[in-house]
Each structure stands twice: as C-alpha cells, then as structure tokens.
Design a protein around this nucleic acid. Structure first.
Lengths: 132, 132
DNA sequence: CTTGACCTTCCTACCGTTGGAAGGTTTATG
DNA sequence: CATAAACCTTCCAACGGTAGGAAGGTCAAG
C-alpha cells in the first residue's frame, strides 16, 4: 500500500510518516519505481505503536527505545517498566507544577472583584507589588 | 542601565529581552550612540511583570493583553479576571489530560512484572494487541 | 488525452528559548 | 597609549512535533 493508505490505516498523517522516516524513528520505506513509498501490515502496526506511544506522551527518543524493546524478543520487561515509570514521574511533576499554577491563579481570581472598576489583585501580583 | 543590568534586575535574559522587543511585546528600548539599549526602572518593572506572567504560563499574546490592561488605568477588572479564568480552564484541561495518561500508565506498569522476562503488558498495549 | 487523486521533495511556520559566530564599544589596567 | 576582558550588537540555527503550501511527477479511470 502507498503512504496514504498506511496513513489511513494507522492514524499517522503522511506528513508525520515521512518525518518519522527522516529522523530514523522508523526504517526507510521500500520505494516503487516511481519513488512512491510502499508499506505493509507490519509497517502499519509499527506506526500504530508509535501513535499510541505519542498519545501517552512519550518523547521521540523514548519511543525509539520502546520500539527497540518491542522488536527485541529477549528484552527484560524491567526495561520497559522503567521507561513507563520515568514517564509517570514526568507526568506527576508536570501535574504538580500545573496544579500549583492553577491554585495561585484561583486565589488571585477569587480576590478579584471582576467588575467595571480597575482595582485588580491579579495585575497587582503580576506587577510584583507585594514582593519586596 | 544597559541590557545586562536590566536582565539581572528583572530576571529576564538579555536574549529574551531582545526577543520581546523584536515581537513588539515590550516597546523598543532607547539606544546610546553606540547602539546599546538603555533601560530604566519602569522597563525593569515591566520585564518582571512579563516574567511573572510567563511563570504562570500565560502565552505571549495573553501577556500582551495583560500588559495593555496593566497600562490602562480605566480597565475593568472583569477583563483581567476573564483572562485569568481562561488560563485556569486551560490548566484544568491539561491537568485532566495528564492525569488520565498517568493513570493509564500506572495501570500498565502495575501489570508489568518488571523482571528479566520479555512478557510485558505495556508493550502489548502500545502494540494495540487488545484493540480489535 | 485529460482530469484528478495521489505522490514526491523542499521550504516555511508555529512557540519560547537557547546557542553561537562575527564584530563593535566601553572600561580598567599595565 | 595599548591591550585585555566584559559587554554589547545583529544574524543565523537549533530544539520537538506538527502543519501548510508550492512545484512537480505518477497513475488510474473516463
């Protein structure tokens, strides 16, 4: 099948398939005489794997690792679990950071009247008026 | 003061100060005969405002809005509060998305033995083996 | 033979930030 | 006065991941 069909079957856009090939995340596709890329079911399977890993927020480099482990029949599941745990830790850290921002903004917003008058604790905070 | 001192006083790198000027987020700095940019306390104050807004994750365009409101003595605080509320909603959405990812990964990681054997529910999920 | 869907490569942009190269200016010191 | 070193200037490129478009080649059906 050509790239369009592989794209439809995998959910990865043709643009991204070419990009993934370009950066070496997936092997170079076989070409027809015309230069068109050709894919088979196993390529589509791999693209779906990449898509799912991206949906879970793994970076390109981590997906590279995951693909390598996927292809390695003798992998220790320990290594896969470690990558997942690292991703979980990243997510926890990001979540905590965002929750802190949200809480700060909520406090500020709660203190702001939100009417037609100019007085505003939000701007006051941004301006650092309560800092030193 | 020159850009280096303004940078140290505000916490915004000289690189970013030039960039903010370039995109019109802050006004063009006055120049010495040598071409060096010159700043005063109010410039530093504005840079700190921008830095704080960025720390809270506001986009450049939102910061543009916030600066405009900050400078407008007749602003309705309603508008500031609305921007903050929008940012809170963005954060809530991002947090929820990341929590969902984290939970999925936690379930998968919990089901993975993490030993020397190759069997791995995480790779199984990524490969979509349980999808159709 | 033409239409149109599909493909190719290459260049551009987004966002916010960082790095570096190549060169000019200012200040302090020998 | 010369020189070093700290500072500044502009310009160009990169990061990650994705998207858009231009200019052109290919292939099937009508």
């Amino acid at each position: 099948m050509q790239i369009g069909e592989a794209s439809a079957a995998s959910g990865v856009t043709a643009k991204m398939i070419r990009y993934y090939e370009d950066i070496g995340l997936i092997p170079s596709a076989v070409r027809k005489d015309s230069g068109y890329r050709l894919y088979d079911e196993s390529d589509v399977h791999r693209l779906r794997f990449v898509l799912r890993a991206r949906e879970l927020g793994f970076s390109t480099e981590r997906i590279r690792d995951l693909l390598r482990l996927w292809n390695d029949q003798r992998r220790p599941s320990r290594e896969v679990k470690r990558l997942a745990s690292e991703r979980i830790a990243e997510l926890e850290a990001q979540i905590a950071r965002m929750q802190a921002l949200r809480d700060t903004l909520k406090h500020l917003a709660a203190a702001c009247d939100g009417d037609s008058r100019p007085h505003c604790p939000i701007l006051r905070d941004l301006a650092g008026d309560g800092e030193g």
